[in-house]
Design a protein around this nucleic acid. Structure first.
Lengths: 342, 342
DNA sequence: GAATGCTAGGAAAACGGGTTCCCATCCTCA
DNA sequence: TGAGGATGGGAACCCGTTTTCCTAGCATTC
């Protein structure tokens, strides 16, 4: 209804000088009182603080940043590739990061990394540190950023950079051992690609579980099918035609596992009665597919919190060494593996 | 191993004065050349621009903001309640907003609204405008922010504030009419709560569709069950016991629809053969449930883009009136409604 | 009573740009 | 050739804080 926004904020800001004038002191004294730096008579400090409060004084963050060379902003970069698939994953991490940063007085600048360039917030120097998610093969980018700013990688590991990752090996091993516990010995491994280090580790976990139970590794049971959900379908078809049909399938992520379930069901094969299935990630879909998917639970919120804390520690110089935080995982058991009622 | 991050960025920044010195002009001239303000000899401008580029000059955004009173930052606030449920929804919107802002030289400050207070980025005056998502009942907060900053609401409508919403009424009407087209006349409506304006509008769409086809509205077919997925289950049970079993169910969102499907299946009722189901949102889960859910598609990316453009228009004073952008929707037809093969 | 040691608090210089005003040019026209 | 206007460029100041140095005032001590 005709309401108009002026292009310049209307709010007449009260500056440190106003406070100084009102308190009959100099701006520097007000600054000291506010930041508790130099020593001063307690009563003076009290009075200044009170007046600042009464006047509703808010230090201008830009001026503050200009003087201190700190922005109190952290950039969080998400790789644009397969964004939709990972959306709920990074969403959960993002919220957790925001929670920590907010509590510590920092702001979160969100940016999607669409090419191999550094996010603009980094280029412009608006952020004090960066958290990167899902920038798998972008080693050069990480390298470039690393020498400019404190940096933490989430769910990805690269030598020389701080990172928060999950125990891919242990998680995969646990899941496969669970399947073995159900009596399966012919367990397939379906994966997007083994060139991804996370998937590689899960693969190692799969192999380790087999080995630990005296099951011979059979490479015909490994299917590397690319990113699309249909690849699981191809995998299944391949299994059908080569008559190498496994009795259980371990998907390197939920996506693969769910694709496998769908393909199996379409072929009239019952899950879990004929073939058991387990996945990795325990994402939003896992409880909702039929049958509900047993999956390795990745603590997404915890990853975000740790990443934020790690970065702040780096920023504040509390941490001197590059550290990799490996989160332990748990197996969320539903019915696709053969447990439970259905 | 042992790499240490100094708490102060190492990068020795090149300032406007450095450029001025290198070009043999004064800082003000460099500023003009860069911002294209005052008139000057083209060759001088060229030379200055070239030198600035060679030196890798980046204007300090803090200094710039301090001088111009602009931050080139936009706050995006997400309501903390039912965050996990809406995660993939707002995630898609967020990415679209970021895309527009980035292209226009703005930054996105992400914050979760956990109480009725304004986000800290607003309080500190770090952002030039705000986009709010999912702050349903927080009228006071919206009111408070509205008088401070340009503001756009996403997926929520409030008098006096600019907003981007979907055509809830039309979408619901289309979905219900689709069910009617399958021959259903006893169609239930399952909703979290009718006090939510979006759901209320979808309810109106449902009623309008019935009315348009001469079907008498029966309030016993409306179930208002609260936010949890189980509420759909309760709804089903209620239908069972009162023998008011519908032949089709329209869920006011996917969550409700999926809950209904699950409850039906558990009761041994086939979907869509015995009871057809349709939902609203067309979220990430919709294609993955069994049977795949027919649902009203909400163009999440488009909502984000429009919200960002709308806000920038407000900021730049291009827009003088508060405007509500109503996006039209489409129905994504899968098999839960009775269409298709299964 | 003067020299010494402290401390509270002030003045001013950054920080890195933008902007305003004013002064040199240079060109044009008389 | 001189006046007038147009235009490019420079100095100074502003934005709001922090921070470094410095001074004034007080108490202590010989």
């Amino acid at each position: 209804m005709g309401t108009r926004f002026p292009s310049i904020p209307i709010v007449m800001k009260v500056t440190i000088r106003d406070v100084a004038k009102a308190a009959g002191v100099s701006p520097s004294t007000v600054s000291r009182a506010l930041n508790g730096k130099g020593r001063m008579r307690p009563e003076t400090r009290e009075r200044i603080l009170r007046i600042a409060r009464e006047l509703g004084f808010r230090p201008n963050p830009l001026a503050k940043g200009l003087a201190t060379k700190m922005n109190y902003c952290i950039g969080v970069g998400i790789d644009a590739r397969h964004l939709p698939i990972k959306r709920s994953f990074y969403g959960a991490v993002l919220e957790a990061i925001e929670e920590v940063l907010d509590r510590e007085g920092y702001h979160l600048v969100f940016s999607v990394i669409r090419n191999a360039e550094a996010p603009r917030c980094v280029i412009e120097g608006r952020v004090d540190g960066v958290i990167l998610m899902g920038t798998d093969v972008r080693g050069e980018l990480v390298e470039k950023l690393r020498e400019k700013l404190p940096l933490v990688l989430v769910d990805y590991h690269l030598p020389g950079a701080a990172a928060v990752v999950t125990d891919n090996f242990g998680g995969a091993k646990a899941a496969v051992e669970h399947l073995i516990g159900h009596g399966h010995r012919k367990i397939a491994f379906v994966v997007e690609t083994l060139s991804d280090p996370n998937f590689k580790e899960r693969f190692e976990g799969y192999r380790a579980a087999l080995e630990a139970h005296g099951i011979l590794f059979d490479e015909k049971l490994v299917f590397e099918g690319g990113r699309r959900a249909e690849s699981s379908r191809f995998a299944m078809e391949k299994f059908f035609e080569t008559r190498e049909m496994p009795t259980a399938i371990f998907g390197a992520n939920d996506h693969m596992a769910i694709g496998a379930i769908r393909a199996l069901k379409e072929a009239g094969i019952r899950v879990p009665e004929d073939v058991a299935v387990a996945g990795f990630d325990d994402g939003d879909l896992a409880p909702h597919v039929t049958p509900p998917l047993t999956s390795v639970h990745v603590p997404r919120g915890e990853m975000g919190r740790r990443a934020a804390v790690l970065l702040l520690d780096l920023l504040r110089g509390k941490l001197c060494t590059v550290k990799t935080d490996i989160l332990s995982i748990t197996l969320t058991i539903r019915s696709s593996c053969g447990c439970g009622s259905t």
